[in-house]
Amino acid sequence: MRCAVAVLFPVVLMLVACQREERDTRPQSALGSGEQPTPVTTLEPGGQRPSPTDNKAASFEANAFHLSEGKRLFGWFNCSGCHANGGGGMGPALMDEKWIYGSSMESIHATIRDGRPNGMPSFRDKIPDDQIWELAAFVRSLSGNAPSSAAPSRNDDMMAHPSENRMPNAATLGKSP
């Protein structure tokens, strides 16, 4: 009896390791496409705007599945046509820590959805809203703004930068500890 427990207990412990991140392939909320707030500025009268209840940004930015889907879509939708593989070309570089329109998920989502002056097209209605969030999460990971446990770990082609999970952490980059 004691022997059986001694065997079963480690087995049960090991089974926990089989738990893996759920792949949320249907994350679309009833809210639908295009109804997310677009904070171009954080200055607002009457205090800060309450964050949206479904909070896409938080659920997408540290999720390995969404980050890797974003990486795939970045290639599929030809983002590299202007931004190269993050190094920039006709469009600005995405792998540095310089943000013209803000570094938050919401700002990048707004950039992709609504476009920006001087060339960034609007992908509103052309890309399902959740895929825009995936792209935004991936763009953030290009400059080391995603946890290395979740960021994509493999580049299939020659790249201007190491794979996203080996990018220097943006939070500590250039600062002495």
Partner: peptide, 16 residues
């Protein structure tokens, strides 16, 4: 209407 119900995980997204 629901590619993820017919073929879960496929790259066809659910479009609104």
């Amino acid at each position: 209407a629901d590619p993820q119900g017919v073929k879960p995980g496929s790259h066809m997204p659910v479009v609104d």
